[in-house]
Amino acid sequence: MKKITIIALAFISQIAFAQTTRFIYQLTMKQDSTDQNNIKTEMAYLDATPEKSVFYGEKRLQRDSLIAKMRETRGGSFDRSQMQNLRSDIDFTIEKDFKTGTKTYSSRIGRDQYSYDEDRPMDWKILSETAKIGDYKTQKAETQFAGRTWYAWFATDIPIQDGPYKFAGLPGLIVKIEDAKGDYSFDLKETKKISSPTVFEQRGNIIKVKRTVFNQQLEKFQKDPTSFSPPSPPMSMSGNSGGMRVQTNPTQRKEFEQRMKDELKTKNNPIELK
């Protein structure tokens, strides 16, 4: 009878995760090493199915929804302050294929969209320490990744070997993970069922490269962002029955490029140090 009960529970767990589950995390960041009091927070989504998952920022979803609505209406004026409010520090997506173990990181450098497959293994050391986090009984684990020591708390009650960002491979969902210095922390806040994982509209071709090449391009961009094709500056849009008209001016472009340089200076403590 005990064996039958275990099999039944396993079957129920499989049914429960047969659809897409959205795990909502709060990301806390200290991106400026010269100002430890400058703490930023953003919400991020992990949409997971039994075959794969996609991790992205909440503002990315909101921004794409706003752009789609703008294209549908094709009338009136477009308030660019709305887009400004949806600017995000989670400017990437990460897709994980559970069957192959592939983790694909995608992000924009200038106007070009790049992607690479993560080539570094994540070796976990499961520790004996346990903790109750929210409604979950969790166990602690440790790993070294990208120049940081990370401590994770995973819940075996959630039968999915995944977590936020690139983190995965523990015998249960990662409910909380933070680095040893306290610069970055992901905390699970909510779980909900959705119909299917989010699929973002792809504008332009993706440049597939190795991780080392991506980092080289990113380093060049950070040193001189104006040497790349810069992302579009804030713009005003108006339209009528004849279509949409985009208006920019040199002053907006110059201000935008200066703001980019200033922001890059304050992002000197990235999540990956090497």
Rank of each mutant, 00 (worst) to 15 (best):
F154M: 07
V246E: 05
S81H: 10
F167A: 01
T130M: 07
R148Q: 05
E178P: 07
Q82F: 02
K30N: 10
P233C: 11
E178H: 14
K166R: 14
A10R: 11
T143D: 00
N240F: 03
S65I: 00
Q247H: 13
P164Y: 02
I174H: 02
T5C: 12
I206S: 08
T5K: 15
I109F: 03
T5V: 14
A131T: 06
I67P: 00
N38C: 01
F256I: 00
G204A: 07
I39W: 01
D123E: 11
L218W: 11
S77D: 02
K103V: 02
P159T: 09
L46Y: 08
Y151Q: 05
Y25G: 02
E178Y: 08
I174M: 08
M244Y: 04
F154T: 01
M244G: 06
T212F: 01
L66M: 13
Y25C: 05
S236M: 07
Q84I: 10
K166C: 05
R245E: 09
T34N: 15
M29S: 13
Q36I: 00
R87N: 07
Q113C: 07
Q14M: 13
G169N: 05
T102R: 15
T20L: 01
I24G: 01
G147W: 00
R253C: 01
I4F: 14
V209N: 02
I4A: 15
N205M: 12
D117T: 14
A155H: 05
F186V: 02
E190C: 06
F256Q: 03
A146K: 12
F23I: 02
Q82T: 06
S185Q: 13
G204P: 05
E142Y: 14
G147A: 06
N240M: 04
S238Q: 10
I90M: 11
I206R: 14
F167V: 04
Q62F: 05
D89W: 11
P234T: 04
S88T: 14
E178W: 04
N240R: 04
K274A: 10
K103P: 00
R245F: 00
I158M: 04
K137P: 00
I6M: 12
R203W: 03
Y151A: 01
E58W: 05
D97P: 10
S88A: 10
L264P: 10
T248A: 03
I67C: 00
K261E: 10
T138Q: 08
R120T: 12
F214Y: 13
S65G: 13
Q26T: 13
T49A: 13
L273W: 07
K193S: 11
R22G: 08
I207W: 04
D183Y: 13
E142F: 15
N269E: 01
T191F: 03
M29G: 04
R203H: 14
F78N: 07
M122Y: 04
A168N: 12
E58F: 09
G182R: 08
P171I: 07
V209R: 06
F92N: 06
E272R: 13
F98I: 00
A68S: 14
I133K: 09
